[in-house]
Amino acid sequence: MKRNMRLEEHRIEQEPFYMPLGPEVKLAEAAYITGLPILLKGPTGCGKTRFMQYMAWKLDRPLITVSCHDDLSTSDLVGRYLIRAGEAVWTDGPLTLAVRSGAICYLDEIVEARKDTTVVIHPLADDRRELPIEKRGELLVAPPEFMLAVSYNPGYQSVIKDLKPSTRQRFVALAFDYPGADAEAEIVARESGISDSLARSLVKLAAMTRGLKDSGLPEGASTRLLIQAGKLMENGIDVRTACNNAVTEALTDDRELLQAIDEMVSSVF
């Protein structure tokens, strides 16, 4: 009963806005039907999480998201005993919860988790589809509705933060990138409510910042940043200030790059 209550909170009732840019929806559906886990990769703010929300809505499954960090332990995922009123009570972790109830478990930014933690998903991510819970001596077999999805950002190329091949090779990989100019403008306009022409200018600005890779800006303005800037504009903040606070300052602290992006803003608007 209690578990179901918790689960219902993860259900997505309203259709989230997602604009398919390729065959990703079809692929994810096929993966769901055949019980394959999926790996979403792409730069920050390009719609990976939104895609998962959309898929959860479309497949009518609850979506349990875990944001990974380097202190995430196996128990944080699988579950642990807690003491309640003098008794030890087992509490499922988010992963176990998802397996038990056939939900979608989405591990966001999986590379941030330590490698020994990511290993627990291995038996779940191949054809066994099972989760051993050592502390309880239990072996959970995932129902067909359960789906495992992980995401990571290949932009942070660091030797330390890379997926182990044994983890990586269990997944169907879906590559995400920023949408083309027209689609991106439509997304920005729709999500933030600003006019189409303003959205186009924002997209133009984003394209310029994405060209700064060699000049010291590893990642340019994401679609999410543009939407945030658009939302500020929609709420009465003037265009330049909105761009300055939502885009320029959010991208970098480097003084010269700040000036350069500022010049771009003043050129575009």
Binding site: A207, M208, T209, R210, G211, L212, D214, S215, G216, L217, R255, E256, L257, Q259, A260, I261, D262, E263, M264
Partner: peptide, 15 residues
């Protein structure tokens, strides 16, 4: 130079 070079590269998307 410091501000215009990234500006130019951002405009052109090339180096």
């Amino acid at each position: 130079h410091g501000r215009l070079l990234p500006y130019l590269r951002g405009l052109s998307g090339s180096s």
